[in-house]
Amino acid sequence: MARIIGAIATSHVPSIGGAIAKGQQKDPYWKPFFDAFDPVHEWLDRNKPDVIVVIYNDHGLTYFLDKMPTFGVGAADSYTNADEGWGLPVRPPYKGDSELSWHIIDNVMAEDFDLVTCQEMQVDHAFVVPMQLLWPDGGAKPIPAVPITINSIQHPLPRPERCYKFGQAIGRAIESFPRDCKVALLATGGLSHQLDGTRAGFINKEFDLWCMDKIVNDPEALAKLSTKEIIEKAGSQGVEVMCWIAMRGAMHGLVSAAFSKYHIPVSNTGGAVMIFDNQPAMALAAE
């Protein structure tokens, strides 16, 4: 059976991709953020996940406002990246795992989460930048991925509590997957930032640090927030924390933070990187 061994959460700001393309990882501005990925690489090397489920939000690459899925699941064996309009180099395609995708789709739908299934899906910077951070060029190749999107562009957004329950359903689905494999989760987005309006540039360190504590020890406190409260406290794009909430919901066992780093600013954003270990509930019961 598949096991969820843990998760990584990170900001996905496009300019991180720009810094990678320009080789600026050691520049004083960027170094504190990129250095946070040394422990991530060690964690991946030590735990060797076989597949990664990536929970993120699209920003107008694969979806437009003509049709806006609340929850979308990639169901392909390959995902392409493409031009998003601001000069980031287009990345080579990423491998999928359609068997796991369809298992998640079947099981999550059976729990009344009515998904959009995507047999073709372009993955934007919110997928590609974190994958580059986890598996930089020149090192090990990225493992196959299942992309899952949560609408964070067009309101009404799914309520944070709904995202948490969606994550729980994803977790149960993964743990019932009959293939013997190790699954890692990757949540991307956040933390606090606001790009639009006269409050643009808003960052809330206190709230971000609170989130990074609660996501480990009391995720239901995060899930109980309303969308409006998140926007007030984390800025209009801070709603991306929904992806973190869903990721946390997917881990049913004993969850601990193996690493945690917060750095301001990453572009306009409170930059956060975390690693979570998950001892699955079944393993706990067996002990």
């Binding site: 067009q154 009404p156 606001q194 639009d196 409050r199 409006k228 926007i231 007030e232 800025g235 209009s236």
Partner: peptide
């Protein structure tokens, strides 16, 4: 939402 300085992209805006 009525949060000062903070546009929210609602159905009306869409």
């Amino acid at each position: 939402f009525n949060i000062p300085g903070t546009p929210v992209f609602t159905g009306a805006q869409a």
